[in-house]
Structures are given as C-alpha cells and as structure tokens.
C-alpha cells in the first residue's frame, strides 16, 4: 500500500516509525511555528525601520564605506550549508541511523554556526574601526538593531545545539528530545530565511539606495 507520507506540522515530520514522538510533536511544533511567525513580524519591524533610515546617515560612514561583500558572501554560504547539515541531522533521526550520526551533524552545524558568528563579529569590528558605531547615525542605529538581532538568534541556536547534543548523548532518543530536534531544525531553517532578507534588504538595498 502506497500512501503519501503524513504531514502534520511544518518541517520534516518524524513519520510513523516514531509514531508517539510524531504525535507529541504535532501541537508543540505548531505552537513553535506561531512563535517563529511572530518573531518574523518583529524582524519585519526592524526591516521597516532600516528602510526608512537608509538616508539618515548624518554625514557618517555609509554602506559603501562599511559593507564588505566578500565577507557577506562567505557568511551566506556558511549559513546555507548549516541549513543542509541540520536537515541531515533530522534525516538521521527519522531513519534511525546510529545516534552518533545525529550528534555528528549537530557538531558540523555548530561549527558552521560559530564560524558564521566569528565572521559577523569581525565585520562589526572593522565597521567600528571605520567609525561605524550605533550612535553615529540613525542609519547605523537601525543597522545594529537588525543584523546583530539575527546574530543573537544564531547564538541562541548554537547554545540550543550544544544543550540538545549533550541531552541526546545522556538520555538517548526519547520522544521529548526527538520533538525538540524537530523544532531546532525549524528554528535553524527560519534563521536562514531571515538572513536572505538581510542580504537582500540591508546589504544590497543599502548599497543601492544608501
């Protein structure tokens, strides 16, 4: 009998093999999705402020002096790859691969997330060295309100990866932990979506209109 896989919450579903964890994930994952969507609205507000502040440079350094597209390109590739690896961790969980495979993909995702943060902080430091600090202009305040907010989310995701990786090693694949992996993967993919908004609006938009 061939049936399409059931799909009862966003992201990759655990499926019938993990029926009880799948059932346990249904409501909480939808709730988590509601949280992500309200987080999206928050990011949207920051984007709106940034767009209205693009011209408010008050004679300070603007996008052309401050933005380093090479570094942004590297960050984009890193974050994109980490979205794939977190997906591979989900697949390892769903198809009962050995537990070290899940922890391995978690580890790769963590390393990529941390490298992303290192590059981002290096960018902020070189911006600050050129006089691009938050209190310099409305444009820079809006920039530092938005981009580090995303960085903060990535940091939270990294802490979550570490904690969940340790929990998986100690407690094994309980229903609760499996359902947490589902939400972590969702969170991580969501951050990638926000980052696409950031490169398109903050960086390219800033360079075009700033």
């Amino acid at each position: 009998m061939k049936r399409a896989p059931t799909h009862s919450y966003p992201g990759l579903n655990l499926g019938r093999r993990h029926a009880s964890a799948d059932k346990a994930s249904e409501v909480v994952t939808f709730g988590f999705w509601v949280f992500l969507m309200s987080d999206l609205v928050y990011f949207g507000l920051m984007f709106a402020i940034y767009i209205t502040m693009i011209d408010a440079q008050a004679g300070g350094p603007g996008p052309h002096e401050l933005f380093d597209l090479k570094s942004i390109f590297a960050q984009t590739l890193i974050l994109l790859t980490s979205s794939l690896t977190v997906g591979l961790a989900m697949l390892a969980l769903k198809y009962n691969l050995p537990r070290w495979r899940i922890v391995f993909w978690f580890f790769v995702t963590l390393v990529l997330g941390l490298s992303f943060l290192v590059l981002e902080i290096r960018d902020f430091m070189s911006m600050a060295a050129k006089g691009g600090i938050p209190q310099r202009s409305g444009f820079l305040s809006a920039f530092y309100g938005l981009v580090p907010l995303h960085g903060l989310h990535v940091t939270a995701g990294c802490i979550w990866l570490i904690v969940l990786g340790i929990q998986l090693r100690i407690f094994g694949l309980t229903d609760l932990l499996m359902s947490r992996v589902v939400r972590l993967a969702l969170f991580w993919h969501f951050l990638d979506l926000i980052w696409i908004g950031i490169i398109t609006i903050v960086y390219f938009g800033g360079l075009t209109y700033g």
């Binding site: 799909h7 966003p10 992201g11 509601v34 309200s38 999206l40 979205s83 969501f190 979506l193």
Partner: peptide, 27 residues
C-alpha cells in the same frame, strides 16, 4: 525564500500543511 520554504521547511499546498501555509500568508 520560496526554494527554502519548499525544500527545507516542507511547506507546500498539500492539504495537510495548509494551516502552516495560512499562517505564513497571514504573517
């Protein structure tokens, strides 16, 4: 954005994921 929504977040027009899509569209 659309590629990632479909391939990573598994959102599409299937009936079972309609609520998630509705929520995205509303947001």
């Amino acid at each position: 954005l659309i590629v990632q929504l479909v391939y990573f977040l598994h959102i599409d027009r299937r009936r079972s994921s309609r609520e998630d899509l509705d929520l995205i569209l509303f947001s």
